[in-house]
Amino acid sequence: MVSEGGVSAPTSIAITGLGSFFGRRLAQRLLELPRPPKIVGIDLRRPWRLEGRIGFHRVDLGDPAAGGKLAEVLVRERVERVVHAAFRRDPTPDVEADHELETVGSIHVMNACAAAKVDHLVWLSSTMLYGARPDNPNFLGEEHPLRGHADAHCVRNRVEAEELLARFRVKHRDLHVSALRFAWVMGPEFEDRVVRHFASPVVTTLLGYDPLVQFVHEEDALDVLERCVLEDHPGTYNVVGPGVLPLSTLLALGGKRALPLPTPLLYRLEHWLSQSRYGDLPAGFYDYLRWLFVADGARGWDRFGEPVYSSREAWISFVSSRRMRRYR
């Protein structure tokens, strides 16, 4: 099998964070290929229902010696490509452990890739890293600085990791890096804090704010990820669904009630709850429902084709699948 760039499809692929949604679903997709590559899973827990079909290595990326261990695994398994998906789905109150995993763990992955002479590193990222700011332009290009959010420690960690990645790219020019910045992922299966927030029938919003929101469907996100793994697409891409919708329209479309609360009240009400659950102040999440952080997906659409689901269709797919689940 020869891909677009004339590079033959990789025969051995490592996935860090195999247990994450993207890690697991990517492994399943790759196993369904006519000639599946060898998959090396790296995680803390043995993945469910993938035993025997993939190689699994238990490496704790929070361990200070993880870089060496990972490099050893990559060399032994003759890995050609690495997919780095070991990021927190939800922030946890253990802020330090999150930092160890997301920032320091990412450094270990980069170092291991360089040491094991891997061809290609695919890096999962998020448009949340641009940060929701009142002074954002309506569409953020891939070159826009990653400003993150001061109160969201997971976003902060990943911004830091991506700054290190930028330096890594300059240093290791022969190692191709694809960074995929996903918008908020919606779909029947994906779940994270954002999805849980939107899943409830009454959704808390900020009184007087109605930002334009953008989603990407999980299958579209996986399509792009799979192509990046099998083909050669170096660079940074925003992976977003076309179109934007105001938050209020989304809720009306989904038949959900909005509970608009005044910003100062909401930030005080949620103060302790949010810190005990996510380790962040409420602003770390609710600012994303207050200001714009819509990414410009044109570069990704040119490269990978227009996604199947627009933002609106991704949202409807999510809402209707949740509704089905309730009646099951």
């Binding site: 009142p134 002074d135 332009p137 309506n138 569409f139 290009g141 900020l206 009184l207 007087g208 704010y209 109605d210 930002p211 334009l212 105001p246 209020s248 910003t263 200001w291």
Partner: peptide, 21 residues
């Protein structure tokens, strides 16, 4: 960036003044 002004202005065609927009 004022509450209430933002959704109203966006609906009737107001855009934040910046070069990119």
């Amino acid at each position: 960036t004022q509450p209430f002004a933002q959704p109203t202005l966006a609906g009737i065609g107001g855009v934040r003044a910046c070069r990119e927009n």
